[in-house]
Protein backbone atom coordinates (compact mmCIF):
# COMPACT_ATOMS: atom_id res chain seq x y z
CA UNK A 1 0.00 0.00 0.00
CA UNK A 2 1.29 3.43 -0.87
CA UNK A 3 0.89 5.86 1.97
CA UNK A 4 1.81 9.13 0.39
CA UNK A 5 3.15 10.75 -2.73
CA UNK A 6 4.92 14.06 -2.59
CA UNK A 7 6.53 16.24 -5.16
CA UNK A 8 8.54 19.12 -3.85
CA UNK A 9 11.20 21.35 -5.19
CA UNK A 10 14.72 21.70 -3.90
CA UNK A 11 13.67 24.62 -1.73
CA UNK A 12 11.16 22.45 0.08
CA UNK A 13 8.07 23.95 -1.56
CA UNK A 14 5.50 21.23 -2.10
CA UNK A 15 4.24 20.93 -5.65
CA UNK A 16 1.97 17.98 -5.04
CA UNK A 17 1.07 16.20 -1.84
CA UNK A 18 -1.25 13.28 -1.66
CA UNK A 19 -1.82 11.22 1.46
CA UNK A 20 -3.76 8.03 1.08
CA UNK A 21 -4.74 7.86 4.71
CA UNK A 22 -6.36 11.01 5.93
CA UNK A 23 -4.03 13.52 7.57
CA UNK A 24 -5.04 16.95 8.78
CA UNK A 25 -3.25 19.77 6.99
CA UNK A 26 -1.04 20.66 9.95
CA UNK A 27 0.21 17.10 10.06
CA UNK A 28 0.75 17.15 6.30
CA UNK A 29 2.85 20.23 6.63
CA UNK A 30 4.90 18.69 9.39
CA UNK A 31 5.47 15.49 7.42
CA UNK A 32 6.51 17.32 4.29
CA UNK A 33 8.88 19.46 6.26
CA UNK A 34 10.55 16.59 8.02
CA UNK A 35 10.92 14.68 4.78
CA UNK A 36 12.47 17.68 3.13
CA UNK A 37 14.89 18.24 6.00
CA UNK A 38 16.28 14.76 5.57
CA UNK A 39 16.23 14.86 1.78
CA UNK A 40 18.08 18.11 1.56
CA UNK A 41 20.83 16.76 3.78
CA UNK A 42 21.48 13.80 1.53
CA UNK A 43 24.29 13.93 -0.95
CA UNK A 44 23.96 13.18 -4.63
CA UNK A 45 24.89 9.73 -5.87
CA UNK A 46 23.73 7.96 -2.78
CA UNK A 47 20.93 5.44 -2.58
CA UNK A 48 17.36 6.53 -3.18
CA UNK A 49 16.08 5.26 0.11
CA UNK A 50 15.43 7.18 3.22
CA UNK A 51 14.69 6.03 6.70
CA UNK A 52 11.01 6.83 7.15
CA UNK A 53 9.83 5.04 10.24
CA UNK A 54 10.72 7.94 12.50
CA UNK A 55 8.51 10.19 10.41
CA UNK A 56 5.69 7.98 9.19
CA UNK A 57 5.53 5.34 11.90
CA UNK A 58 6.39 1.66 11.82
CA UNK A 59 6.40 -0.28 8.58
CA UNK A 60 7.04 2.71 6.37
CA UNK A 61 9.60 2.99 3.66
CA UNK A 62 10.45 5.87 1.48
CA UNK A 63 12.06 6.16 -1.91
CA UNK A 64 12.73 9.36 -3.74
CA UNK A 65 14.15 10.52 -7.00
CA UNK A 66 15.72 13.80 -7.72
CA UNK A 67 15.02 15.32 -11.13
CA UNK A 68 16.47 18.76 -11.82
CA UNK A 69 14.79 21.00 -9.28
CA UNK A 70 12.26 18.48 -8.06
CA UNK A 71 12.11 15.65 -5.58
CA UNK A 72 9.58 12.90 -6.23
CA UNK A 73 8.87 11.04 -3.01
CA UNK A 74 6.85 7.87 -2.50
CA UNK A 75 6.07 6.54 0.95
CA UNK A 76 4.79 2.99 1.22
CA UNK A 77 4.73 -0.09 3.41
CA UNK A 78 6.10 -3.61 3.26
CA UNK A 79 3.64 -4.84 0.68
CA UNK A 80 5.39 -2.86 -2.01
CA UNK A 81 8.75 -3.54 -3.59
CA UNK A 82 11.28 -0.76 -3.18
CA UNK A 83 12.73 -1.03 -6.66
CA UNK A 84 9.28 -1.29 -8.18
CA UNK A 85 8.41 1.95 -6.46
CA UNK A 86 11.43 3.59 -8.00
CA UNK A 87 10.21 2.31 -11.35
CA UNK A 88 6.82 3.75 -10.59
CA UNK A 89 8.31 7.17 -9.98
CA UNK A 90 9.91 6.76 -13.36
CA UNK A 91 6.54 5.91 -14.91
CA UNK A 92 4.97 8.92 -13.27
CA UNK A 93 7.66 11.26 -14.50
CA UNK A 94 7.60 9.75 -17.98
CA UNK A 95 3.89 10.27 -18.18
CA UNK A 96 4.26 13.86 -17.10
CA UNK A 97 6.94 14.22 -19.71
CA UNK A 98 4.58 12.97 -22.38
CA UNK A 99 1.86 15.26 -21.13
CA UNK A 100 3.92 18.41 -21.16
CA UNK A 101 6.64 17.62 -23.71
CA UNK A 102 9.80 17.88 -21.69
CA UNK A 103 8.35 18.49 -18.32
CA UNK A 104 9.89 21.10 -16.04
CA UNK A 105 8.94 22.50 -12.69
CA UNK A 106 6.90 25.32 -14.21
CA UNK A 107 4.68 22.87 -16.11
CA UNK A 108 3.94 21.18 -12.88
CA UNK A 109 3.25 24.42 -11.07
CA UNK A 110 0.77 25.60 -13.66
CA UNK A 111 -0.87 22.28 -14.40
CA UNK A 112 -1.57 21.12 -10.93
CA UNK A 113 -4.91 19.50 -11.79
CA UNK A 114 -3.50 17.63 -14.71
CA UNK A 115 -0.67 16.26 -12.64
CA UNK A 116 -3.20 15.15 -10.10
CA UNK A 117 -5.22 13.41 -12.78
CA UNK A 118 -2.13 11.56 -13.92
CA UNK A 119 -1.33 10.44 -10.42
CA UNK A 120 -4.91 9.36 -9.77
CA UNK A 121 -4.79 7.17 -12.83
CA UNK A 122 -1.61 5.47 -11.63
CA UNK A 123 -2.36 5.15 -7.95
CA UNK A 124 -5.85 4.48 -6.77
CA UNK A 125 -6.56 4.64 -3.06
CA UNK A 126 -2.99 3.67 -2.28
CA UNK A 127 -2.80 0.82 -4.76
CA UNK A 128 -0.96 0.77 -8.03
CA UNK A 129 -3.56 0.28 -10.72
CA UNK A 130 -1.76 1.29 -13.86
CA UNK A 131 1.88 1.06 -14.76
CA UNK A 132 1.85 1.80 -18.45
CA UNK A 133 2.25 5.44 -19.26
CA UNK A 134 0.46 5.02 -22.59
CA UNK A 135 -2.67 3.80 -20.82
CA UNK A 136 -2.45 6.63 -18.33
CA UNK A 137 -2.11 9.13 -21.13
CA UNK A 138 -5.14 7.70 -22.86
CA UNK A 139 -7.28 8.06 -19.76
CA UNK A 140 -5.98 11.54 -18.95
CA UNK A 141 -6.70 12.76 -22.45
CA UNK A 142 -10.22 11.40 -22.34
CA UNK A 143 -10.84 13.08 -19.04
CA UNK A 144 -9.57 16.39 -20.39
CA UNK A 145 -11.78 16.01 -23.43
CA UNK A 146 -14.76 15.31 -21.26
CA UNK A 147 -14.03 18.31 -19.08
CA UNK A 148 -13.65 20.53 -22.10
CA UNK A 149 -16.88 19.20 -23.57
CA UNK A 150 -18.77 19.80 -20.37
CA UNK A 151 -17.42 23.31 -20.27
CA UNK A 152 -18.24 23.91 -23.94
CA UNK A 153 -21.94 23.60 -23.37
CA UNK A 154 -21.58 25.99 -20.54
CA UNK A 155 -23.21 29.36 -20.43
CA UNK A 156 -21.62 32.06 -22.45
CA UNK A 157 -20.39 34.25 -19.60
CA UNK A 158 -18.14 31.60 -18.16
CA UNK A 159 -16.46 31.08 -21.48
CA UNK A 160 -15.94 34.75 -21.95
CA UNK A 161 -14.76 35.06 -18.45
CA UNK A 162 -11.92 32.70 -18.98
CA UNK A 163 -11.18 34.37 -22.29
CA UNK A 164 -10.87 37.74 -20.66
CA UNK A 165 -8.86 36.46 -17.89
CA UNK A 166 -6.26 35.16 -20.19
CA UNK A 167 -5.72 38.48 -21.81
Amino acid sequence: MIKAVMVMNTQGKPRLAKFYDYQPVEKQQELIRSVFTVLSSRAENVSNFMEAESIFGPDSRLVYKHYATLYFVFVFDSSENELAMLDLIQVFVETLDKCFKNVCELDIVFNYSKMQTVLDEIIFGGQVLETSSTEVMKAVEEISKLEAASNAITLVPAKYASGWNRR
Partner: peptide
Protein backbone atom coordinates in the same frame (compact mmCIF):
# COMPACT_ATOMS: atom_id res chain seq x y z
CA UNK B 1 -5.19 23.57 -4.66
CA UNK B 2 -4.28 25.74 -1.70
CA UNK B 3 -5.11 23.14 0.90
CA UNK B 4 -2.37 20.57 0.35
CA UNK B 5 0.27 22.92 -1.00
CA UNK B 6 -0.16 25.88 1.27
CA UNK B 7 -1.66 24.03 4.20
CA UNK B 8 -5.01 25.77 4.35
CA UNK B 9 -7.79 24.03 6.17
Amino acid sequence: YLSPLHFVD
